[in-house]
Amino acid sequence: MAARRPYVRPMAGWWRRNPFYIFYMLRESTAVFVALYALQLLYGLYMLSIGEAAFDTWLASLQHPLYLVFHTVALAAALLHAFTWFNVAPKAMPVLYLGTRRVADRTIVWVQFLFFFVISAAMIGLALGG
């Protein structure tokens, strides 16, 4: 029998090999923006704890164009994160049954989007109306 010498291929740069992996990396990287946004929000809370004047200065500082750019990017990242999560949620939860019928994955995805839009609309309405 011929000698065996199995060849293991290198993994370097694996995520550039397939569009599916690139999108996966994009999805994972959204976490960075969400984390930065959360830190920034925590800082706002900290300013609030100091007093009204400090909080107002913080609020005013958010008007800076760089902040506006950051917020737009962070919003896009958070939406991508949420939407991709909605799409995989049926894979991560126990199978749901209505009576004896299995609830389709599609239905679970759409119900999440529905809740997302209804709640978002209500929140925006509250913020603008109030």
């Binding site: 992996y21 995989v88 894979k91 991560a92 126990p94």
Partner: peptide, 22 residues
């Protein structure tokens, strides 16, 4: 880490990603 490509390429509709994540 839920890359999810396994379920995409499975020729038999097994959806292994759902098995792992459940």
């Amino acid at each position: 880490t839920l890359v999810g490509y396994c379920s995409e390429v499975c020729p038999k509709g097994v959806d292994p990603a759902s098995a792992v994540n459940r």
